[in-house]
């Protein structure tokens, strides 16, 4: 038993305990806090497993956006202390037996899996010079499987359109938190805003060489936007509806356009000629980062509905 393993066990144990508490904590708000901790712990796991790209994404999304979204939702949907109701379809022992069986089956199957098969990692590495970026994950995301990533940006776009479609007539999707944040908080935010923008730029630029990339950069920007929204200065309220729509769609559209440009240069869709690949990928990534940032901050800002039932009811 090496120290590494002890550390891994402790970390996995912490993740599992946090997951169990997040769902089963008697008080909803406690579960939500533990869930945020769960996200942070997961990013530690990604670091341990050699996936810093994921760790950055998880940290930015978990600490910055999801955290705020779930806390805000928990505030609205009750912070009740009573034991939360559960479905009781099956008797207790049977459900526990079924749970145990599911767990054992999953663990059993997972343990039969050995480290990866096939030579895909070698191929990824071998073709890297033609891709134009050094970070393998970015290469997979934007070049080898760029088409997937385009669809993924589409998924974000659909979520944003869905949220916009939900609003009542005449309602602005951005709401204002009306309170007087202490000057300390405003001051801290003023320091963090340029910091966040720098950080996003760094991640975007860094993404072609080391861990980072469009999603991470976009998520950091979105988190900063969420912070400002919480302090009563939502950035999304500053742009017109049209500009907002344009920002939402720019990632998806720009991705497609660059893909089509590749066709006019004589390749397949999304086939960037090696000489042009690096700048083309950077153009895509910048646009995607903008769309990710606007979409994620919109997903937070649009949360509070008009006619909020609990309005004023909660301290």
């Amino acid at each position: 038993m090496t120290l590494e393993m002890l550390f891994d066990m402790a970390l996995v144990g912490a993740v599992v305990v946090a997951a169990a508490y997040a769902i089963n904590a008697p008080v909803l708000i406690a579960g939500v806090f533990v869930y945020i901790v769960f996200g942070v712990l997961l990013s530690l796991v990604w670091v341990r497993l050699g996936a810093p790209d994921l760790a950055i994404a998880e940290a930015a999304i978990g600490a910055g956006i999801t955290g705020a979204i779930v806390l805000d939702a928990a505030r609205q949907m009750g912070m009740e202390r009573r034991r939360n109701p559960r479905l009781r379809r099956w008797p207790g022992w049977l459900s526990w037996a079924a749970t145990a069986a599911v767990g054992v089956i999953f663990a059993g199957v997972f343990l039969t899996v050995s480290e990866g098969r096939g030579d895909l990692p070698q191929r990824v590495q071998a073709e890297l010079p033609r891709v134009g970026v050094e970070n393998e994950v970015t290469a997979v995301l934007l070049s080898y499987r760029g088409y997937d990533t385009w669809f993924e940006v589409g998924v974000l776009l659909v979520a944003a359109l869905g949220v916009l479609a939900l609003r009542a007539p005449g309602e602005s999707p951005a709401r204002r938190f009306r309170w007087d944040p202490p000057a300390v908080a405003d001051g801290a935010a003023d320091m963090l805003v340029p910091g966040g923008i720098l950080m996003a730029g760094y991640l975007l630029w860094q993404g072609s060489r080391g861990p980072g990339g469009a999603f991470q950069a976009g998520a950091v920007l979105a988190a900063i936007a969420v912070l400002l929204t919480l302090l009563g200065r939502p950035p999304i309220a500053r742009v017109s509806d049209r500009a907002r729509d344009a920002l939402l769609v720019v990632g998806f559209a720009d991705f497609l356009l660059v893909g089509l440009v590749a066709v006019t240069l004589g390749g397949a869709l999304f086939e960037y000629p090696p000489a042009w690949a690096a700048p083309m990928i950077l153009v895509i990534e910048s646009a995607v980062a903008v769309s990710v940032a606007v979409t994620l901050s919109l997903l937070f800002a649009a949360g509070g509905a008009a006619g909020d039932a609990s309005e004023g009811g909660v301290p």
């Binding site: 998880e58 994950v137 997979v140 949360g303």
Partner: peptide
């Protein structure tokens, strides 16, 4: 080094999960 392919898949998966769950919360 670690295999980048599953990592890229997970990054996509995370984005999908975030989109779905925040839409669900809204």
């Amino acid at each position: 080094g670690p295999d980048p392919v599953p990592q890229a898949l997970v990054l996509t998966g995370i984005v999908v999960a975030v989109s779905i769950s925040s839409f669900a919360i809204v």
